[in-house]
Design a protein around this nucleic acid. Structure first.
Lengths: 341, 341
DNA sequence: CTGAAAGCGCTTACAG
DNA sequence: CTGAAAGCGCTTACAG
């Protein structure tokens, strides 16, 4: 455990001089610098980041708390993409990423407040999009750097956030389905208490209305982002002449469940029924038939959020503003023209 | 930014007293405790974790560095599982997880040494299993808490590590294939410069030898854990009467590539050829035919590693010893009896 | 049980 | 350009 003063002693300078050569941003004569570096190398010195953090009041770290107990956590590609995006920009900016877990949506707030309050990170990325927990309100009270992944409630005008155009994207998917001749289209959302799912529902409704298509309430269902949720949705709504000819699912896992239910019933996709998922998970391309999916750029969303956050930290300002990124429908083999009727 | 002395002032006690009530492990009279707590609440005080870390010389954090630029990083379920496992135990023990990126195997060492050297974490989990980079040797020099995921070279007797029984597991899979009547069996490894891939190869060879089956060198190939790598392996070895009737792949992505190549050639699985993957990725169950896969308990491996690490940190000892966990072959639809002669 | 002091390992305004 | 000192916000051995 060698410190700055060991190096100073060996190099015959004051500890503050050693500090100066390591912090880099002060003028030091070339010979002292070299003496110090030599001494440091000989002693295998590396400055203690914690001590530095305490002194400069910055940790060079941003944090995220993930609901690690959520079942689909690593089945779904959402969090891996988020973490990958964050890692890219923290790495490039010489920041570190601190990851905390949480057991519930309420706990997510607790954990976030703790990381921020105890100053373990300079800023934080928050992913909660729950409607029943006022994450944003509780966090905005602290005036600490915070950027949201997902659009916050409208009343929080000052929050910084990055999101996909959920409403428009889903609308576009439904328009595409309508354009392929479908008239009975189902919307299988994830968790209805979630903002993104509400936005997508609205996109669905707008597209249906614009096409003058009546919506049978049975066509709207929720699968909570689970494979079996998609499966069950089909069980519930596939009967009689009101059975949908196309399904839009708010993630790929549910779309896979839908495909399974359809296969069990001997229904061929896309000849009889079309299915479109969301997120373009790695497996989408590998299924057969390969799954058409709305590719949401979560990796880029996370990277953008990290950029905004780190920039705000470095400028010493509170992050503001928002960015909306485009998603892209990847047409594969599970969607096509409507042949029924 | 309220500190311990603000609270002390308001509660009319010495700062050290405030510290004592928050650190918890010292005797404090009930009335002072309550006064302090009241003052703390009124001022919305949370102790600064960085200051505490500097003082007690512990960060309550463990770290891992992930090769975030590696292409398959989030296609494959390996890292999500690892992170999930680590998160479970860090959360339960009130530790935090620090994640660093790295751009190459050499950089992995650099990053690890930096995190450790600058004391940003109390210990670290290392996943490198490369044979051409002496990660372990460089790290063991520092005597800092370190546990490996994956068995280290034999010469490092003091390292702590957790791994699956790669050799035995693969041997068992090949025995299963042999038991189903296969005699021409292919081994499609990941990165040949990697220890786990070597171990699996040896398991394959042992099983073949034990069954008195000759190994055609063409049957041994490497797909570098990529989907296309599996595809190419089939292109290279599927010809003539020496074409394998069964493929074992060291991850599921390559198995999926193998299935694609076979499908293109109009070969039916498992009737004509059997395929077994590794890791039991989420998509394995969703493919059709569903992929048989060797389920390696990486989540549990990571959790075990974190346990050992945290325990060593708390005991103030250097972690030692190893744990080998069992994998399980999940038989699904891509493997079955050999029908070809 | 509580106070006063020294210390954890850095940084940086102030002199010179 | 370099030194000496004070400070970042805690903890904890030492007294009492």
């Amino acid at each position: 455990v060698t410190t700055i003063r060991d190096v100073a002693a060996r190099a015959n300078v004051h500890p503050s001089t050693v500090s100066r050569v390591f912090s880099g941003n002060e003028r030091i004569s070339d010979k002292t610098r070299q003496r110090v570096m030599a001494a440091a190398k000989a002693l295998n010195f590396q400055p203690n980041a914690i001590a530095r953090s305490l002194s400069v009041q910055r940790t060079q770290t941003i944090a995220i708390v993930v609901p690690h107990v959520y079942d689909g956590y690593f089945e779904d590609s959402f969090f891996p993409q988020i973490i990958s995006g964050l890692l890219n920009v923290t790495y490039a900016n010489k920041y570190r990423l601190l990851v905390g877990g949480c057991e519930s949506y309420q706990d997510e707030i607790t954990q976030t407040l703790e990381i921020l309050g105890t100053r373990q990170a300079d800023g934080i990325i928050v992913t909660s999009g729950r409607l029943d927990v006022d994450t944003v309100g509780e966090l905005l009270g602290q005036r600490t750097p915070l950027v949201l992944i997902g659009r916050p409630p409208n009343r929080y005008k000052t929050a910084a956030w990055v999101d996909a155009k959920n409403l428009e994207d889903t609308k576009r998917v439904v328009e595409y389905l309508v354009g392929s001749g479908h008239r009975k289209i189902a919307y299988v959302g994830g968790d209805p208490d979630t903002r993104v799912v509400k936005e997508r529902l609205e996109g669905y409704q707008q597209a249906m209305n614009a096409a003058h298509l009546a919506i049978n309430p049975e066509w709207i269902d929720y699968g909570y982002f689970a494979e079996d949720g998609g499966y069950q949705a089909v069980q519930r709504m596939h009967h009689g002449d009101q059975a949908p000819t196309a399904y839009y699912a708010a993630n790929d896992l549910m779309a896979i469940g839908i495909l399974r239910a359809l296969r069990e019933r001997g229904i061929s996709v896309p000849e009889e029924i079309s299915v479109v998922g969301t997120n373009n998970s790695p497996e989408a391309a590998h299924l057969s038939p390969a799954l058409s999916s709305l590719a949401v750029p979560y990796k880029k969303i996370a990277a953008t959020a990290a950029h905004i956050l780190i920039n705000a930290i470095q400028e010493g300002i509170v992050p503001t503003g928002y960015v909306l990124l485009d998603s892209e429908l990847v047409e594969r083999q599970t969607s096509g023209p409507c042949h029924s009727s």
